[in-house]
Amino acid sequence: MTHAIELEDVSRAFGAVLALDHVSLGILPGEFFALLGPSGSGKTTCLRLIAGFDHPDSGRVLLDGEEVTDVPPYDRNLNTVFQDYALFPHMTVAENVAYGLRVRGVAAAEQRRRAAGMLDLVRLGSYGDRRPAQLSGGQRQRVALARALINQPKVLLLDEPLGALDLKLREEMQVELKSLQQRLGITFVFVTHDQGEALSMADRVAVFSHGRIEQLDTPRGLYTRPRTAFVANFVGSANVVTAQAAERLTGRRESFAIRPEQIDLLADDAVPAAGLIWCSGKLEDILYHGASSRCHVRLDAGTVLAVARPESGSASHVPPRGSSVRIAWRPESMVLLESG
């Protein structure tokens, strides 16, 4: 199967900073793909190379199996939703949406008809005559989406499209984008630093760090089988136990990660079931999170582990701060990490 997008051994440096360090990546047609990472990790550079706004120092970029490394953006069959939406302030909403048709010489009547159709698709049918400055953030976002989709691209690139929206709107747009992608059946490539967004929307996620892909996997794969300490920490929260500390807990000198919700908090005198790994410690801190509480337990061996305790509705189950407790977990919930 031909990849919709392929990066082959791509590198890009800005001065002394290596933004992308020999990255290879294949994105399948119709896939909702997320590029996830902290700022400066190379994810946005990666998107810019795919869009054609930047040129790699070495390596190749392929769209649909054809090399486009040297093809300018206006000759690539893909479109972009920009982080700041990049709507043209001197044009109306309808003119913005029709821009892609206008520069291709489509007749004015056809431009108007298709722009109106696009605005209906993003539920802004009656806003065509307004200026972008007269719209709210969420509406501008939908205009940017309509404008990017009007040329019927095979691939839509989205650069942190939800970053500027407030939490509630962001959650609505997540659902909307996902359903739009399923309806259109085109490839979405989505840049985000928000791991929750990547996990809930993407089919596959590439986690970037320091210009390299740390791990490329499905959201479930990333969460349940993080390969490195970076991924374990960045995707969800995790207790990352160093090799030294692990030796004292499990007897094996191998670094591992364990999710807080995989650890049970027991009373000091409770006897853990057979087959569980357990140790005792002191409850240092309890942070109330609503659906659960986060307990920090300092083990007798010195390590501090976070334990998630689901909210049961009464406070009586939580031992007081400073009390001695035991914690236990199943050996298979530990994920061994690659060093480095």
């Binding site: 869009a51 054609g52 706004f53 300018p72 953006p73 206006y74 479109n79 972009t80 920009f82 982080q83 700041d84 990049a86 709507l87 043209f88 821009y99 892609g100 520069v103 291709r104 404008r147 990017a148 040329n151």
Partner: peptide, 12 residues
């Protein structure tokens, strides 16, 4: 980004 958006939408 406005210039990039224009190029992205196919403008020479």
């Amino acid at each position: 980004s406005l210039l990039q958006a224009s190029a992205d939408l196919g403008a020479r």
